[in-house]
C-alpha cells in the first residue's frame, strides 16, 4: 500500500486531522464535536499514516503504544470523576472554574472527562486497527 503521493499527502493530512481533532474535542461542549468524534478523527489520522507509510511508522508517530493511550484516557476520565468526590460531591459531579477561555469557554472537570474519552477512543481504535493490520500483514 505504499505510494509516494499518498505518503506525501498523508503527512500533511495527518497533521491537519490531528489539529482538527483537538479543535473538535475542545469546542464539543458548545458546538458539534466532543471526545468521541475528536478521538475518532485523531485515530483516522494515524490510520491514514499507517496506510501511507506502514504500521511501524504510524506507531513511531504515535510515540506511546495504543494500550497506554487507552489506559491513560480511562484514568483521566476516572480522575475527572473522582474530583467530584474529593470536593465532597457524588462521583462524577462537574466542578467549574468561572473564568472564560477562548474556544473552550469555561473550564471544568467535564472537559477533562471528555479529554479522557478522547484518548480512550484514540487508544481503542488504533489498538484495534494496528492489531488487525499487523496480523494481516504477517500472514503475507
Amino acid at each position: 500500500m505504499n505510494s509516494i503521493i499518498l505518503a506525501t499527502v498523508s503527512r500533511l493530512l495527518t497533521g491537519l486531522l490531528l489539529v482538527f481533532s483537538v479543535f473538535l474535542l475542545l469546542r464539543g461542549h458548545n458546538l458539534p464535536g466532543g471526545g468521541f468524534s475528536g478521538g475518532l478523527v485523531a485515530a483516522s489520522a494515524f490510520v491514514l499514516a499507517s496506510f501511507a507509510s506502514g504500521f511501524p511508522a504510524a506507531r513511531r508517530l504515535l510515540v506511546v503504544p495504543p494500550r497506554v493511550i487507552m489506559g491513560f484516557g480511562l484514568v483521566v476520565a476516572l480522575v475527572a470523576g473522582l474530583a467530584g468526590n474529593v470536593a465532597g460531591y457524588p462521583f462524577l459531579t462537574g466542578l467549574w472554574d468561572t473564568t472564560l477561555f477562548p474556544v473552550v469557554g469555561k473550564l471544568g472537570t467535564p472537559l477533562f472527562f471528555d479529554v479522557g474519552v478522547y484518548f480512550a477512543v484514540l487508544g481503542v481504535t488504533t489498538l484495534i486497527v494496528f492489531s488487525l493490520g499487523e496480523d494481516s500483514e504477517e500472514e503475507d
Binding site: 464539543g28 461542549h29 458548545n30 458546538l31 458539534p32 464535536g33 466532543g34 471526545g35 468521541f36 487507552m70 489506559g71 484516557g73 480511562l74 476520565a77 476516572l78 470523576g81 462521583f91 462524577l92 462537574g94 467549574w96 469557554g105 469555561k106 471544568g108 467535564p110 472537559l111 472527562f113 471528555d114 479522557g116 474519552v117 480512550a120 477512543v121 487508544g123 481503542v124
Partner: peptide, 28 residues
C-alpha cells in the same frame, strides 16, 4: 448546571457521564 450549549455532549460528559465511563471501559 453544566455550562454547555451542546446538550448532547453535556449529557455524555456530565449528566450521564457514568454511562460514558462504562462505555469507554467496554470499548477498552
Amino acid at each position: 448546571l453544566a455550562n454547555g450549549r451542546n446538550v448532547v455532549n453535556v449529557i455524555l460528559v456530565d449528566f450521564r457521564a457514568l454511562d460514558t465511563l462504562g462505555e469507554i471501559t467496554v470499548l477498552a
